[in-house]
Design a protein around this nucleic acid. Structure first.
Lengths: 298, 298
DNA sequence: CAAATAGTGTCTTTGAGACATTATGCG
DNA sequence: CGCATAATGTCTCAAAGACACTATTTG
């Protein structure tokens, strides 16, 4: 290899030794995590099978800005770590959980998204199975709480126009934890024509969710809905041993619609689950076979 | 609304007025773009239909680091703009193209990815149709060049182990432009077990591609391969009027495998294309009907 | 036995994959 | 007419969707 020299006659080694970072304004970069879990809702009747609910973890802000509002767990990325390592670190600090499914979601960079200063958010989607959640509950992060998530599509309008179309989807996001109800309306606008695409999430009404986190949550649910259909991502919400009905319930709460049992079991049961000899017990009806996860290559 | 006060007795307004950004080390954030296009390869024979080739735009580095190597177009994000706006701005500056398909890809944040300092790269996938490319060619960015892309999967190994599996995919990325041949081997390792997932791209051999850009290119091709199958993203690589054979060729070069004509036309032809009265001419064989894009909602 | 869920059988319809056949313009 | 591509017909097979039926436990 020849030693290339630049227009100032410097080799790369010399250039780097003399390099001083400029005085440009730089953003802070935070990671924010949408941590999903699927928990059993207690039905009063002991004979009925418990229903699953989709949960996400939020933390109550104890300082400005957005004091008192609920925010996604997260924190700033430190030098000498990747955003993924930062997410892992924050996860451990805030929930004392260590190894869970983690996937980068999107980097939100609207200049005004944090009123203090220029902060980008590299967001992550995390999934944790409900059996590990209980460990987390008694954590020292006093104001961390699992909220039940309901994302309803309230309106979809689709209009074709000159060389393209506009699609507007209105979401109503409802997060509940006991008496606490956080409610937000998010409008997802997609505008397409032959010169490009524009996709934006606008928060119309917001009640109690910090910063632009309602938008990040909607984005995360959309990603989860998409990926659940062609990957084994849902297995991360399920304990080591699970029934196929549990797995189906997870699919149903993610997709927000009921699925038919037989085809579900044929498709996902064969693809994602391996039968074991174990069975459920303590149910007021016929016991169910327990399955183990079967890993899909992709 | 009550005026909430924090533990120092400040309202949000007072807090923000007094806020001073701390002296933490912050990263620089750049955007890097993988700009794809599909161009005709000239076959010598006038009777034969031209074949399509997948191209990406690279820029030769004229300064350290990676002097002389070829890099993705991009630049630093400035205050008061989003990463997407930065990508649009750089796109216009470097290629004088204004409205094209743009989609955020991934934020790469390995601390050592830039030898100068801490630089994260928020990468974007861009698609441009070949009829607009010619406008770009005579640009003032003297050392910008369209490289023909060939990404070959040279080896896949899959091994199941205790509670999970490891999949290793070796890619050989070859970029050619006339006599210039840039060649890189990238290894994609996915390691899964019941406590999490680890996915990494390691550059094994690298000949002429700057920074970690080979990895970004591989990631972009994987995304393109995935999305082409369930979205109308491929329409962005095609001019206003196109033949179904052209569209099929685009699918074939993206997926890297031949497709059968009849089912392709039934599926994508009906879904993505609208027949017009126009026809091709100047071909040494039967003319072909020209189609217009039909927009899919999703 | 009744209630409730577990688990399977089967019919219909849809569509992918594969191959064959017909159609058409150019030289 | 022959070449090369355009465009469509049709057969097979696999799987999704829908519904019905049988099986098994508890109280």
């Amino acid at each position: 290899m020849e030693e290339l020299r630049d227009k100032n006659g410097l080799t790369e080694k010399e250039y780097l030794a003399a390099y001083r970072p400029g005085d440009y304004v730089k953003p802070s970069v935070a990671v924010d995590m949408v941590i999903f879990s699927a928990a059993n809702k207690n039905t009063g009747n002991y004979r009925l099978l418990p229903q699953k609910e989709l949960k996400i973890l939020l933390i109550k802000r104890s300082g400005h800005p957005c004091l008192g509002a609920w925010a996604l767990p997260g924190g700033f990325v430190e030098p000498n770590e990747t955003t993924e390592q930062a997410a892992m670190r924050e996860l451990k600090e805030e929930t004392s959980v260590e190894n869970i499914y983690l996937e980068q979601l999107y980097t939100f960079s609207d200049p005004g998204r944090d009123p203090r200063t220029w902060v980008m958010s590299c967001s992550y989607l995390a999934l944790i199975d409900s059996s590990k959640v209980n460990v987390t509950a008694g954590d020292d992060a006093a104001s961390a709480s699992w909220f039940t998530l309901n994302l309803e599509t309230t309106d979809v309008s689709f209009s074709e126009h000159e060389n393209g179309f506009t699609r507007v989807t209105d979401y109503h996001l409802l997060l509940t934890d006991g008496d606490i109800r956080l409610s937000t309306t998010v409008r997802h606008t997609v505008d397409r024509n032959d010169t490009g695409t524009c996709s934006r999430y606008d928060i119309a009404e917001n009640n109690g969710i910090a910063f632009d986190h309602a938008r990040i949550i909607c984005y995360a649910v959309e990603r989860l809905r998409g990926k659940v259909q062609y990957t084994d991502i849902a297995l991360n919400l399920v304990p080591e041993y699970f029934t196929l009905t549990e797995l189906q319930q997870i699919y149903e709460i993610i997709l927000g619609k009921p699925l038919i049992k037989a085809p579900f079991r044929r498709k996902y049961g064969a693809l994602l689950a391996e039968p074991t000899d174990k069975q459920t017990s303590d149910a007021g009806h016929r016991p169910s076979r327990l399955f183990k996860r079967k890993w899909m290559s992709d």
